[in-house]
Design a protein around this nucleic acid. Structure first.
Lengths: 347, 347
DNA sequence: TTGAAAGCGGTACCAT
DNA sequence: ATGGTACCGCTTTCAA
C-alpha cells in the first residue's frame, strides 16, 4: 500500500505519458486531446491525486497564503472578522496566517516582516493604536505585495479599504444621548493615531454641534492602547470624575473600552445610567445580559472580514495592475438598551 | 536595486563559494571553517537573506505548518486557545491554519482532508459535538501525522491530550449549589458524544451522590450542537420548566450554553437566582457585569492552547517515535458570583 | 498533440 | 573543508 501521496510523475508512468502532458491535462486543458485529458483526470481522481502545494508555490511564486495583522484574537470584533475572512479564504483555497500586534507598533513591524518572509501573497491589516508611521507596509507594497486595510486604516498607502460607518455610528450614539436628555456627554476613545478614533470623534463632535452643545476637550479621553490594560481606562474615568461638571453620559469607542468602563463604573458603585449613562461600540454577543443591558453600536464584523478578504484575493489574482481603489463603508447598528436610557426607575 | 529576495546562489556567487558550502554554513556549522562560516553569515545578514520556505518545505517535506480544528473562532474559550497556540507556534516559526467545524461532523471531515492536503506537519483538534467516529483522523494518524487532542478528546487514538479538570469543575459548581441550599439542580450540557460532556456529567453526578441527592435523568438536558443555535437551549429549558418539580438551579456545561440559558431565563423574566439559580462553564472576560453577576467555571484556555501546541511541536520534531503519551489536565477555577447565590434580596 | 528538459531555491550525498 | 550534482514536485518553454 502506498502511503505517500501520488505525484504527477506516478500518473505519467502509469499512463505511459510524459510528465508535461499530465501536468497540462490537469490544468491547461488546451492543446491536449480530450481522451488523454480524460484518462489523466480519471486516473487522478481514482487515485486521489492532490497537487503538492509546496512544489506549486515554489514554481509559481505564489503561496496562496494571506497574512492578517490585528491587535488581538480574543476580542469579539476581531474574532468575527476572522470568521468572515476564513469563510472566503477557505473557499478560494487560500489560507490565513494570523498575527497579533497587541496594539504595539514594534510588534506590528515584526509581524509584517515575518509575514513577508513567509511569502504571503497579500496582507489584510488593521493598524495598531501605536502606529503612526506605515513605512514597513509601504516597503512591501512598493514591491508589489497587495494590501487591504480595514477597520483602522491609513491613507498613506493607496489601496482598497474596508471600514464601518464610524462617524455615523458615533453620531447616532451621541444623538441618542442628547435626545435622552443628557447634557454632558464624555467620550472615551482609543489612540488619536487611528482612523477609527478620528472618525468616531468626528461623529461625536458633529452630533454635539448640530444640537448646539458646546464641545469641551476635557470630555474627550484617549487611551493610547485602546484599553489593552485596564489602567488606561481607569485613568480616563478618574479624570472625568474629577471635572468640575462631571459628565452624565459616556460614549465609548471600542469593545474593550465599553466593557472596561462598564466594569469600572460598576465596581465603584456609580449608578448606570442613574449617575452616568453609558453606550459604546461593542460586538459582544449578548449585550442584553448586562446590568443594565448595554446600548451598543455594533459593527458588521463578519461582513468586514469577508469584504476585505474578497478584495484582497481580487487584487492578488488581478491580471492587470489595479489603479482605482474602493473604500467600502459598511453600516453600523445602534442598539438601544437600558445603559443609555434614564427612566423613572433611576431618577 | 534588487527587489527580489536574495538566494543562497547569490551568496555563493558573491563570495565565490559553492552553493553547497553556503548552505552548510547557514545551518550545519560542522565541517565548515569558521572563517568561511562567518563570511557567509555576515553577508547573509548584511543582505537580509531569508531562506525560501517553500523550497525548504519541498525539499524537507516539512511545511512548518500546523492545522487547527475547533468548532468556532468567535467563542471566548477558543479565541483564547488560539492565542495560546499562536504564542508558541510563532516562537518556533510554525504557522497555524485555523479551520472551524461549526459542530458539524461533515465539516470536520472536510477540514481534516483539507489540512492533510495542505500538508500540515501535525494537527491540533477539539472534536465537534457531532463526532462519534474518528476514522478520518485515524487514517492520517496511521500515516504518521502527529495529533494532539485537546478539550474534546477521543481515546480511540493514542496520543497526547490536553484537557481541563472538567469533572472537578463540574463537581465544584454542583457542590456550590448544594451548599447554597439548592435541592433540584439541573444540568444543561452538550452532545453526549464528547468527552467534556461525559466528564462534566460525571462531576455533576458525583457531587449529587456525595451529598445524597438522588440523580434524576430528567434534570439532564443535552444540546446536540452545544447550543450553536439558540433553539436547542430553548427546548432544554422548556423541558425543565415543564417538569413536575421545576429545578431551582441550572448548571450549564459550556460558554454558549451558559450565556444562552442566561439570556433565555432573563427574557422570560425568571428571576435569577430567585427562581432559578445559574452557574456554568464560561470564559467570558467580564462575568461580573451581568445582572446578576455570573458564577462561572473558568478554564485556562490560553494555557491549554499553549500546552497543546508545545506537545504537538515536540511530536513533530521528535527524533525517535514517541510511544508514551501524556494526558495533561489543567485546573479550572470556580468563580462565585450572584447568579448562584440566593441571598436575602431574592428570597 | 506530446515530450524533453530547464529551473524554482534549497538540501545532502558523493567526491575531492 | 569545499565543490558538483541529483532531487523534492510542478510548470513552462522549446522542439518534435
Amino acid at each position: 500500500m502506498k502511503l505517500e501521496p501520488i505525484t504527477i510523475k506516478d500518473i505519467a508512468k502509469a499512463l505511459d505519458l510524459s510528465i508535461a502532458t499530465v501536468s497540462r491535462a490537469l490544468r491547461d486543458s488546451y492543446k491536449i486531446s480530450s481522451e488523454t485529458k480524460q484518462k489523466v483526470l480519471d486516473y487522478a481522481a481514482a487515485n486521489n491525486y492532490r497537487p503538492n502545494l509546496m512544489a506549486q508555490s515554489l514554481k509559481n511564486k505564489k503561496s496562496r497564503t494571506i497574512g492578517l495583522i490585528i491587535s488581538a484574537v480574543p476580542n469579539n470584533f476581531f474574532a468575527e472578522v476572522i470568521n468572515g475572512i476564513e469563510s472566503v479564504a477557505s473557499n478560494k483555497d487560500y489560507h490565513v496566517i494570523i498575527t497579533q500586534s497587541q496594539e504595539s507598533y514594534e510588534k506590528e513591524v515584526k509581524n509584517t516582516e515575518h509575514l513577508a518572509w513567509k511569502s504571503v501573497d497579500g496582507l489584510l491589516v488593521s493598524l495598531s493604536t501605536e502606529t503612526k508611521d506605515v513605512e514597513h507596509f509601504k516597503k512591501l507594497h512598493e514591491k508589489g505585495v497587495p494590501f487591504i486595510f480595514f477597520d483602522r486604516i491609513t491613507n498613506a498607502i493607496k489601496t482598497h479599504t474596508v471600514v464601518a460607518d464610524n462617524k455615523g455610528g458615533a453620531r447616532a450614539a451621541t444623538e441618542h444621548f442628547i435626545q435622552s436628555g443628557f447634557k454632558h456627554i464624555a467620550h472615551i476613545t482609543s489612540s488619536a493615531n487611528t482612523s477609527i478614533t478620528q472618525e468616531r470623534l468626528a461623529g461625536y463632535y458633529e452630533a454635539l454641534q448640530q444640537n448646539n452643545i458646546p464641545i469641551d476637550e476635557a470630555y474627550v479621553k484617549y487611551c493610547m492602547h485602546g484599553g489593552m490594560n485596564q489602567d488606561e481606562i481607569e485613568t480616563a474615568i478618574d479624570e472625568l470624575l474629577a471635572l468640575e461638571t462631571v459628565p452624565d453620559a459616556i460614549f465609548t469607542a471600542s469593545d474593550r473600552l465599553t466593557i472596561g468602563s462598564f466594569s469600572i463604573l460598576k465596581r465603584r458603585n456609580i449608578a448606570i445610567p442613574g449617575k452616568i449613562a453609558l453606550a459604546g461600540f461593542s460586538n459582544f454577543s449578548a449585550p442584553e445580559l448586562f446590568d443594565p443591558s448595554l446600548t451598543t453600536v455594533r459593527q458588521p464584523a463578519f461582513e468586514m472580514g469577508k469584504a476585505a478578504a474578497e478584495l484582497l484575493i481580487e487584487l492578488i489574482e488581478a491580471k492587470r495592475p489595479v489603479t482605482s481603489f474602493k473604500k467600502i463603508e459598511l453600516p453600523v447598528e445602534l442598539e438601544i438598551r437600558n445603559t443609555s436610557v434614564r427612566n423613572k426607575l433611576y431618577i
